[in-house]
């Protein structure tokens, strides 16, 4: 069964001359790490936000693990989906521990379970629980904040994670570490990850599949090797060439 299925999904925002998503069809298999690549305004965020119903399609169907999402209560649906955004969105009036425990708290987990899970999540994102749990977001670096953002999204053990340019505002070295860790977390968890980026190196490094978008359409969906070897059209080819990433780089493996 596919994790995510889009059937002829169409979305046009009010006052926009062209659709943000133009009859999109795709099936994403469970366990994939899909990186969505495309220039700004091509519909990447719209695609992601349709899955957790922050946006509703004008037409078409979206299925999550075989079930129509429009039949579900959006609030309940979102609690089972991890969501990470570039601005992180940590609540400044809550400690790190409270931030991570936001949804468990709402779900009324018992205290010990919350504590244990918060510690486990902090360890998962490579932060020392005792050192970080009681800090406030303002006392963290950008990279640490996004680690907390990840921990908060992971705590309910969602079957699917949506990440919208999570490392977009983070410096190159920290970013590299975060990428490695996210890759490790995904590999260990076997969950489905959908990750938006406009950095082709990041897309190639992290993705088991790459989805290339332009003007509301999916131009190509395939493994990094496929995309590099057989660009679907001129746009994809140009994207690869202008970024200076070549097949040889990919074969170096860790070189990217």
């Amino acid at each position: 069964m596919a994790a995510v299925t889009f059937k002829d999904v169409y979305k046009q925002f009010e006052g926009m001359g062209y659709p943000a998503l133009d009859h999109v069809n795709i099936e994403i298999a469970e366990g994939e790490f899909v990186t969505i690549l495309g220039s700004s305004g091509c519909g990447k965020t719209t695609f992601i936000k349709m899955i957790n119903r922050l946006y509703e399609p004008d037409a078409g169907e979206i299925l999550l693990f075989g079930k129509q999402i429009r039949d579900k209560d959006p609030v309940q649906l979102r609690r089972r989906i991890g969501y990470v955004i570039q601005q992180v969105g940590l609540f400044p009036h809550m400690t790190v521990g409270e931030n991570i425990a936001t949804i468990p708290h709402i779900l009324k987990w018992d205290k010990e379970r919350i504590n244990a899970q918060v510690d486990a999540m902090l360890l998962l994102v490579d932060l020392e629980p005792q050192e970080f749990k009681n800090r406030y977001p303002a006392q963290l670096s950008g990279g640490q904040q996004q680690r907390i953002g990840l921990a908060r999204a992971l705590i309910c053990d969602p079957r699917i994670m949506l990440l919208d340019e999570p490392f977009g505002a983070i410096d190159a070295i920290t970013r590299e570490n975060l990428q490695n860790e996210l890759k490790r977390i995904h590999t260990e968890s076997k969950k489905t990850y959908i990750f938006v980026t406009h950095d082709i190196r990041e897309a190639l490094k992290l993705g088991t599949k790459i989805m290339i978008m332009n003007q509301g359409q999916i131009l190509q969906y395939g493994t990094p090797e496929e995309v590099l070897a057989h660009p679907a059209d001129g746009f994809v080819e140009e994207l690869i060439q202008t970024s200076g990433v070549s097949e040889s780089l990919l074969k170096d493996g860790d070189g990217i």
Binding site: N52, L54, V75, Q76, L77, R78, R79, R80, I81, Y83, I85, Q87, V88, G89, L90, F91, P92, T102, I103, I106, R152, A153
Partner: peptide, 11 residues
């Protein structure tokens, strides 16, 4: 972005 995070996580 705080409101988006809050809604997105299921508040």
């Amino acid at each position: 972005s705080l409101v988006e995070a809050a809604v997105g996580m299921g508040m």
